[in-house]
């Protein structure tokens, strides 16, 4: 059985939901700890949402210096599938595994809504079970969710097909409606909305999020 790690940082909120989503997708969740440098030999890693270190300094900044991140950056550069959700996306940007950064939502308020996304890239380890152009609905909940990067970086992301999700109805001022991106290799994906909260009938707006985790499952099997 594939083992998918979920890292808990001080202030992570959604690590248990992420682990639950991994289990519902048919993989074994493995809880990982920020202060350890061990990835426990997992086949993929999820960085969950939350407010690690209370968003002090910058969202995700202090967690990006955690001991486990040194191991994770090396593993990601070697091809390990890594998914960053919300605060996890912010951490991946702070480590420069992903481009850009998140600043406060343009309206300065916390946004909590069921958000429609358009899937733009189905070649990543986390999205290959979606169809290109498919619209999915998952929760969005954050204060620092506005994705920004300079124009040349945005052009590069677009030109290389590295925009993975776009908002249908921009909720926070993100540049070019970008909700999620990937790295050049396609193994590292980050997005602000929360697929792990939409994996089970009766909980959340849909079960559209489950295929993130089942995509990773088949990606790790294919890679094994």
């Amino acid at each position: 059985m594939s083992r998918i790690g979920v890292i808990t940082f001080p202030g992570s909120l959604d690590d248990r939901d992420a682990a639950r989503a991994v289990r519902l997708a048919g993989a074994e969740p493995v809880r990982l700890w920020h202060a350890s440098d061990s990835l426990a030999g997992v086949d993929a890693v999820v960085l969950p949402g939350g407010f690690s270190y209370g968003d002090y300094l910058r969202a995700g900044a202090l967690s990006s210096f955690a001991p486990i991140m040194t191991s994770l950056v090396d593993a990601a550069n070697a091809g390990l599938p890594v998914l960053g959700i919300c605060n996890g996306f912010q951490i991946l940007c702070e480590t420069h595994l992903l481009a850009g950064a998140m600043i406060k939502n343009t309206q300065l308020t916390f946004v909590c809504t069921d958000q429609v996304l358009r899937v733009e890239n189905t070649c990543t380890a986390w999205t290959h079970q979606y169809s290109e152009g498919e619209q999915i609905t998952v929760p969005l909940k954050n204060q620092d969710g506005q994705f920004i990067a300079d124009e040349s970086t945005l052009d590069e992301l677009e030109g290389e097909g590295r925009v993975v999700f776009r908002y249908v109805g921009n909720p926070n001022g993100s540049r070019r409606d970008i909700a999620g991106i990937t790295n050049a290799r396609g193994n590292v994906v980050g997005l602000m909305p929360h697929p792990e909260h939409a994996v089970e009938p009766g909980f959340g707006p849909s079960t559209d999020g489950l295929r993130f985790f089942s995509s990773a499952l088949t990606a790790t099997l294919a890679g094994a």
Partner: peptide
Amino acid sequence: EVLSNPVI
């Protein structure tokens, strides 16, 4: 390296 993020 720590107190600022050169992206923003």
